[in-house]
Design a protein around this nucleic acid. Structure first.
Lengths: 194, 194
DNA sequence: TAATACATGTAATAAGTTACATGATTCT
DNA sequence: AGAATCATGTAACTTATTACATGTATTA
């Protein structure tokens, strides 16, 4: 799924600037299962504008670049919906340097192993927070996303959020239950053959 | 983590061909948290050979290209271990078209939603299988990986495999418990405003 | 004082994927 | 008969990342 489609999807929840769209992928609704950086979002929005799938209104600001608030056109909405129906979703891909490194735990100092596990846990704790739809630290954030016009949470979003939460919880639980065991094993392992 | 490092890691478990290394990322030990395609593995091995980090022995075969069995050099092993100690692991990144699409469940036919969920479940079921270290359909596979010279499973590998399994299980459990609920909600949702 | 948030945009670069090229054997 | 497995390798292409460019206001 290319960044253009991702942007269309992001705008399904209402108008937003490029900067705000990035936040959805960094912190917000989509953060745990899609990524898109500013360097790809801005060109994508330009392209979408040329193709008539989005329009923008320029809001002047003091001491800042003009803010461009993008919105789907009818054509854009239709296109996105069509894409949804026609696209065979690509394989999920998860890549984790930490897990790869932990595979070689025997070869590194135990402190490093522990640090890696702790970092893995910390990141998942953070993710768990970001997913939480009730978590509105983001006071007045652009997050109409995940909710419809009446402020009701959308079932699809809830389901996906719940799934993300479940994955995080499982990860954290596994670490709680197995970290010490691994570290002990590693100490034995190293004692036997130094 | 670039493909070269990934290849070095793959060879930490013993000798292997480029083709076999790909399998480790496709089906094997690393499949659930790293990816590497043949088009990137072969050039990486060539580069590593030039740099003296790996060597290969050519085994002639009938009716096939000669098989190149790669092996770490001492220098290669040292380099990998150093990388392990020095690398700040990059952020984990998970991307899932299916989850992205499911976010928009309200906008598509219920059958599609269900199909997407089922496919997501099926893929995780498969992954769960592939992770399972006891799963030796791969009779006599090159998988010395995850085990040391004596055939003992390596604690680090077990931990990572267990974690992957836990994530899969959590995902499957969540789907079992929430799929019907979502579909019902969607039916209500659509009944209210068609 | 340094970093972060806000705000957009471009361009060089890096990186990997897909497709092409070749070809026998085995499974379905 | 067709697909998949084994086996390597190259090259065109796509794609996104990183860095650059610019600048204020707020927070730590």
């Amino acid at each position: 799924m290319d960044v253009r489609t991702l942007c269309l999807g992001a705008l399904m929840g209402g108008e937003a600037t490029g900067y705000e769209i990035r936040k959805m992928f960094e912190d917000g609704t989509f953060s745990h299962f899609q990524i898109a950086s500013l360097g790809s979002i801005y060109p994508a929005l330009t392209k979408l504008t040329q193709d008539g799938l989005v329009t923008f209104v320029e809001h002047e600001q003091e001491n800042r670049p003009d803010k461009k608030v993008y919105q789907l056109t009818q054509e854009g909405r239709r296109t996105f919906l069509r894409t949804l129906l026609q696209t065979r979703p690509a394989e999920d891909r998860y890549r984790s340097d930490i897990l790869f490194m932990l595979t070689f735990a025997e070869e590194m100092p135990i402190e490093l192993t522990e640090a890696l596990i702790d970092e893995f846990a910390a990141r998942h704790e953070l993710m768990s927070h970001q997913i939480d739809p009730d978590n509105e630290d983001k006071q007045g954030s652009p997050s109409t996303y995940g909710r419809d016009e009446n402020g009701n949470p959308k079932p699809g979003c809830c389901f996906v959020a719940g799934l993300g939460q479940a994955m995080c919880d499982a990860t954290l639980k596994f670490i709680r239950e197995n970290k010490q065991g691994l570290l002990d094993e590693l100490r034995n392992f190293k004692a036997r053959k130094p």
